[in-house]
Design a protein around this nucleic acid. Structure first.
Lengths: 215, 215
DNA sequence: TTCTTTCGTTATAAGTTGTAACGCAATGGA
DNA sequence: TCCATTGCGTTACAACTTATAACGAAAGAA
């Protein structure tokens, strides 16, 4: 095959059909959850027979993996956009919350109940570490130097996950805490555990954001 | 039917079979996840034909609801036991972590990705509020009186969820924060998001427990 | 025009949940 | 002891699902 520089019509068609399949898949996930995702139903919606979809995705799991990849990609882009005007963990927090509320199922595809035996491919973990780097940048901006707590001392000696990032221990700790606390509020809120309780989840989120380790 | 006081042989047999079905269900969930739970497979394991199970559980969802109920009940009992020697949120935290690590799938059945359209029956929400009451007792023990932060002021006027509990605003806030922060660490840990990162999740958990709002 | 690749089809296999109809066995009362 | 009722487990079946195989048609390349 000669190098055309632009995509062939066939490839254009193929990527377009793949995109439409993913769109329908997101719709289905939103109404019935990821576990109820049916390739047959998607095919019918698109006016073609069930097995036809297997030309585009080798298996149901491959489609879901692709959706997970897109979700990570989308979060990484959101973080990057929020960091455009400088490293700022408050901006990241609000971006994260907006992104999560925008499509809860997308959030749960990343941070929800894990499927036993499923392992994300390497390119997805690469996107995850891209997200972590953005977060570390923001947390480094405000953090001071030497470790002040036992856990920060522990982190100083266990920082493989920072992947060479020069963040001081306090920043490492701040990034981890940002992650777990924001996730703690968001995940319970999105799962509906706060509904009917009366208080405003947004205020709890803000309070937690305000209470992050200051150092 | 005459009131026998003790169960009839038939009822004893019935409850025993139901218990064995649930045991097999837990085993399946542990190896393949809740979404892959198969009534047929359970029946085969027990040496009987598929439809026989429908004498014991009207539908797959009813079995899962029963498992969720058992999970909540188990957590409530664990909390109660941890509170036996007086209200102590540190004891609750360690009990929670032990309970979660003991069976991650049981934890995710309660706090994992919600199933769209599923609503827990009233008796389950009653157990949930029993858990919350135990937590509020522990948080009241250490908290002072008047609200000190904007969010605590907000909680003072939105405390339906406390269900009449006389906890001061600082205790309400402490309870919510306990919940979201412990869940934030535990859920990410159990989902495997920390694996390969190098640090010790137990230390992060301890650090978060130590950092709870003090007031 | 001809060759080749790709696509969508139907047929089929092996699962799943759940219902229906039947027979057997155990329970409880006379 | 006998009998009627109740409950249990079975097979048969309907309507799904994922996934593979084999075939025909359409589209792109030479």
């Amino acid at each position: 095959m000669v190098e055309t520089g632009t995509k062939s019509p066939r490839e254009r068609y193929r990527t377009q059909v793949r995109a439409e399949i993913k769109e329908r898949a997101w719709e289905q996930i939103a109404t019935a959850g990821a576990s109820a995702l049916s390739l047959n139903a998607i095919a019918k919606q698109m006016g073609m027979s069930g097995p036809a979809l297997y030309r585009y995705f080798a298996a149901r799991d491959e489609l879901i993996t692709e959706l997970i990849r897109d979700a990570y990609r989308s979060l990484a882009d959101t973080f990057r956009a929020a960091s455009e005007s400088g490293p700022d963990h408050v901006a990241l927090a609000h971006a994260l919350r907006g992104w999560a509320l925008d499509d809860p199922h997308r959030y749960f595809l990343i941070y929800g109940t894990p499927v036993p035996g499923y392992h994300a491919p390497d390119d997805i973990t690469a996107i995850a570490s891209e997200i972590m780097t953005t977060l570390l940048d923001a947390c480094t901006a405000l953090a001071s130097g030497s470790p002040a707590t036992p856990f920060e001392t522990h982190l100083e000696g266990h920082r493989q996950w920072a992947d060479g990032h020069p963040a001081p221990p306090a920043a490492l700790r701040r990034a981890l805490t940002f992650w777990t606390r924001m996730h703690g509020v968001l995940s319970l809120e999105l799962a509906g555990h706060f509904t009917g309780m009366g208080f405003d989840p947004a205020l709890l989120f803000a309070a937690e954001l305000d209470d992050l380790p200051a150092h």
